[in-house]
């Protein structure tokens, strides 16, 4: 399985006071690609104190404990920077991982982007 280049793969879109991060292309199954993208999100949060970031995960089809851990790291980083980091549009199998690991207790997760944007 060939890891894809992550150049220009993540898209940041301002919607009011919120920045929505999403994938420019769909169907991410190789976690190496996903982890690289999460590193880019970390850089984004690092550079912007207090940023309100919504991560639309609808195209993520696979996530392991490494990916879950990286997302927890992003949430911690965001809190340290005085920001907000929320998730939306998780595929059912990915949502199940958050439920199983009880990560729904620390993450704000929404069914749709609209719902999530309304919560900020």
């Amino acid at each position: 399985m060939q890891a894809q280049s992550t150049e220009n793969v993540i898209r940041f879109r301002p919607v009011g006071k919120v920045v929505v991060a999403s994938f420019a292309k769909g169907g991410f199954r190789d976690e190496r690609d996903i982890l690289k993208v999460l590193e880019k999100l970390a850089e984004f949060i690092e550079k912007r104190q207090g940023v309100r970031l919504l991560f639309n995960m609808e195209t993520i089809e696979y996530l392991s404990s490494a990916g879950l851990g990286a997302l927890v790291g992003l949430l911690k980083k965001s809190k340290r920077q005085g920001g907000t980091f929320k998730l939306c549009s998780l595929q059912p199998a990915i949502r199940e991982l958050f439920d199983v690991m009880k990560l729904t207790k620390i993450f704000d997760i929404f069914g749709s982007e609209e719902e999530a944007l309304a919560s900020f």
């Binding site: 404990s65 851990g69 927890v72 199983v100 620390i106």
Partner: peptide, 10 residues
């Protein structure tokens, strides 16, 4: 819950 590792075996 805030740990970044340790979920694989679970």
């Amino acid at each position: 819950l805030w740990n970044e590792g340790g979920r694989g075996i679970r």
